[in-house]
């Protein structure tokens, strides 16, 4: 596979390390009322779609960026690639 790195262009997926569902960015608030339940859901339950999947890849043999890759799990077609940091900020993790 090739991952089209937003800064570096297409790079072989073997340079990356995979983590999993990009929902891992949305770590729950540790002080929330139902924090434990939320962390269990965050830690263990996955949509695991047979279609577009947003997922985290780390460019370990490259620039050490975490990326959010949107990829169709049935064809491996990659629809978009973003820096995870940008996604995290957009999803409100700046606070």
């Amino acid at each position: 596979m090739l991952i089209d790195h937003p800064l570096l262009g297409p790079r072989d997926a073997s340079e990356f390390v995979y983590k999993g569902d990009a929902s891992l960015i949305n770590r729950p608030d540790w002080q929330a009322e139902d924090a434990l339940a939320k962390f269990i859901d965050y830690g263990y339950l996955r949509d695991n779609p047979a279609s577009d999947h947003r997922e985290l890849w780390f460019h370990e043999q490259g620039d050490r960026s975490w990326l959010v890759v949107t990829r169709d799990t049935t064809t491996h077609e990659i629809k978009s690639v973003e820096l995870a940091r940008d996604v995290a900020r957009r999803e409100g993790r700046s606070k």
Binding site: V17, F58, W66, A84, A88, R89, S94
Partner: peptide, 18 residues
């Protein structure tokens, strides 16, 4: 050494980007 560095970058870039 390698997984911990990767993990710390995850925490830095994805969980606490600012």
């Amino acid at each position: 050494a390698v997984p911990v560095y990767r993990h710390m970058e995850f925490v830095r870039q994805c969980l606490f980007p600012d």
